[in-house]
Amino acid sequence: MANIKQIAQMAGVSIATVSRVLNEHPYVKEDKRAAVLDAVAKLNYSQNMNAVHLVRGKTLMIAVILPYVNHPYFASIIDGVANAALACNYKLLLCQTDYQAEEEYKVLELLKMKQIDGIIICSKTISWDVIEPYASYGPIIACENAGDREISSVFIDHYGSFKLGMDYLITKGHQHIGYFIGRGDSYNNINRKRAYAEALQAIGETPREEWGFDRVFTFERGVEVIRQILTMKERPTALIGAGDDPAAAIVAEARKHGIRVPEDLAVIGLDNQPIAEVMGITTIEQSMKEVGGLAFQAFYERINNKDLPPTKHELPFRLIERSTV
């Protein structure tokens, strides 16, 4: 296998110049850069990336922990991370966990073994108390409020966004309100359920267990929500949820069974995905793509300045009024 000394001899430059070209150093004359690259091609040279990473102290790879890659909420975060990473010459390692703790541990161990430079966590099962010690091996960025820890956070106030939707339904005269969310014991959904319960209690209503639907991630689960409601003697007059895809399914399936939206059943989604605009679904807009971009930025700043303290960045949300309420 060719080495950089042979490349230098063929190109007629110093070994230091070859090193600068291979490491994409900007201050190299174009004729010398061209000569080095020509010699690299002729000698069929390839770098030992393990050695490069050892010299740089970086792998130029960042892992993203997420439960599902095909969910619009997480896909939007990935979109933001990927665009920001590309601009900084970083590669992504997408780690789908299906909320399995052992899969999350595997990614944390990659950080400990210096096989990645950092981790962005979209959603997880393991507690922050377990995760925090791994931050000593590299930056860990949370896409939720991780509290006062050695972990930077970029997040939406999910209690506040759900409360905004609940207050809007109540001002429209609704008291019999249900909800549909993803994993019921996640940090974000615990806050959503708290906002839901407190809004009902403020008007003298008690939350009805049968009107709360968990693990509603997909269009198919949204269809199941309506099928369950059809079996009830007492039905909710409104639903607020944690996603536009299941909201779209709820609206479509309700109309299929003669339930008028919004006259018989009002529906509020979340995220303001394209499907919400197409179907005229009232929703809470929050930019998860921006969350992803800022999460990578927080990582990049800390990997390049290890003395920086953890940061917290809260992003806004707003109600988008359409035709389903």
Rank of each mutant, 00 (worst) to 15 (best):
A142E: 04
E253Q: 10
V18Q: 03
N191G: 10
L111H: 03
I259A: 08
A82W: 00
Q228G: 13
Y179F: 14
D157F: 02
D129E: 15
M288Y: 11
N3A: 05
P309D: 15
E209G: 08
N305W: 11
P274V: 04
S123A: 13
I116D: 03
D148E: 14
A101S: 08
T324E: 01
A39T: 05
A87D: 10
G147Y: 09
K114H: 12
V216Y: 00
G182I: 00
G178W: 00
K32G: 14
N70L: 04
R221H: 09
K58T: 12
D264K: 01
L169C: 11
K312P: 12
P310A: 11
Q9H: 10
H25K: 06
C122V: 08
R227C: 09
S323T: 15
I15G: 05
S161C: 14
A238I: 07
C95Y: 04
M166C: 13
T59L: 07
E290T: 15
E205D: 05
D117S: 06
Y187G: 05
N83C: 11
T324N: 06
P72T: 13
N188L: 05
G160C: 06
V267A: 03
M166K: 06
Y73T: 07
Y68T: 08
G222W: 02
E301W: 05
N191D: 09
P72R: 09
A146I: 13
T171I: 11
I140G: 04
T218C: 06
G243H: 01
I140A: 05
V325Q: 04
Y179K: 02
V107I: 12
R302E: 12
A254D: 02
P236G: 03
S76K: 10
T237W: 00
V21P: 12
Q115Y: 03
R33P: 05
Q297A: 05
S14Q: 08
A266C: 06
S287W: 01
A146R: 10
E24F: 15
A87T: 02
I284N: 01
M113Q: 11
P236N: 03
Y159I: 03
S46G: 04
V267P: 03
I320R: 05
R255P: 02
I7D: 03
L94H: 01
M1G: 15
I15R: 12
